[in-house]
Simulated assay, not measured.
Amino acid sequence: MNTFHKFALLALISSVIVGCSSSPTESETETTPPISSSDRYQEERYELKHDVAPDQPISVEHIEEITPQYEPYSLGGNKNYTVRGKRYQVIKDPTNFKEKGQASWYGKKFHGHLTSNGEVYDMYSMTAAHKELPLPSYVKVTNTDNGKSTIVRVNDRGPFHPGRIIDLSFAAAKKLDVIKTGTANVEIEVITVEKPTTQTKKQALKQFQIQVASSQHKDRVETLAQDLSQKLSVTSFVNSEQEIHRVILGPFDDYDLTQKTLEQVKLLGYSSAFVRKN
């Protein structure tokens, strides 16, 4: 294996294990160990050197709050990993997990890039990054500086800065008024949703959709939606918002059918597909 192929392999592995919010800043390089080839890849794979807010910030009032639901943990992003010489262990059982510290946020630099579990980072979605919670997890975040709170879906790794416990998407940070200050004191609490039993399937889990993939290329997403609709014999459509286009299957009224379709989607290669409420 030549040097180029070795570097490419390291880059690929790093992009899966260490998500969008994990690239180190210039100030970190003065106090941390020398940058490895995989860490250097994290710095170089983005078009922007520094993270910024959108060119034309929009109101996020129309963005709905996330409703926690049961989701199996992702195939990717849930193994123990090392960043800048420090080892991180993914929490196996996050029930009753609480944590206090600082929240930061990440935006345009990472928009459209892969998160640690293989999804596409959308700064206008209510998501977040955490170093050790299993992916995905639902977390209630309370800004203790102003009392505001919201729920986010953790699908990425980070932040790797001393004292910071969670990286919020632009939308989530906007709702908590973290954009102006850059960071805020927060308390986070994991919301655990038990796997539904046979008795609750028909009552609690109705009208669900499967989000297969998202991309900035609308034509590709539309083609994929049509292709999956034909292969799986299900309804599909494209949901577009702020230059991100998502392939959605459904809605489904039957929980068993939803899960069976999700398994088929993953067998087709879309391992980051997940179920969401309609």
Rank of each mutant, 00 (worst) to 15 (best):
H5T: 02
F7R: 13
L10Y: 11
A11Y: 07
S15G: 07
P24V: 02
E26H: 06
S27P: 01
T31M: 10
T32A: 07
P33F: 04
P34Q: 14
D39T: 15
Y41V: 04
Q42F: 01
Q42C: 02
E43T: 15
E43M: 13
Q56M: 11
Q56C: 07
S59C: 02
I66C: 07
P68V: 12
E71L: 14
P72T: 04
S74K: 03
S74Q: 12
G77D: 02
G77N: 03
V83I: 14
Q89K: 12
P94I: 10
N96W: 01
F97Y: 15
K98G: 02
K100S: 15
S104T: 13
W105H: 13
W105N: 08
W105Y: 15
Y106F: 15
H111T: 11
G112L: 10
H113T: 15
H113F: 15
L114H: 15
S116N: 14
E119F: 03
E119N: 13
D122T: 04
S125K: 11
M126A: 14
A128K: 13
H130S: 11
S137L: 05
S137W: 05
K140M: 13
D145F: 02
N146I: 10
T150W: 05
V152D: 08
V154G: 03
D156L: 08
R164D: 08
I165D: 00
D167Y: 00
D167V: 03
S169D: 02
A184D: 05
I188Y: 00
E189F: 08
T192C: 08
A204L: 13
Q209H: 07
Q211S: 08
Q211Y: 02
Q211A: 10
Q211F: 04
Q211R: 07
V212A: 12
A213K: 06
S215Q: 11
R220N: 06
V221M: 10
A225N: 10
D227L: 05
S233C: 12
V234D: 01
T235S: 13
S236V: 04
F237K: 11
V238F: 03
N239H: 14
I244R: 02
L249S: 01
L249Q: 06
G250V: 00
G250K: 02
D253I: 01
Y255T: 02
Y255W: 15
D256Y: 12
D256S: 13
Q264N: 13
V265Q: 06
V265T: 13
V265S: 09
Y270Q: 00
S271W: 09
S271R: 12
F274Q: 05
V275D: 01
R276Y: 04
R276G: 01
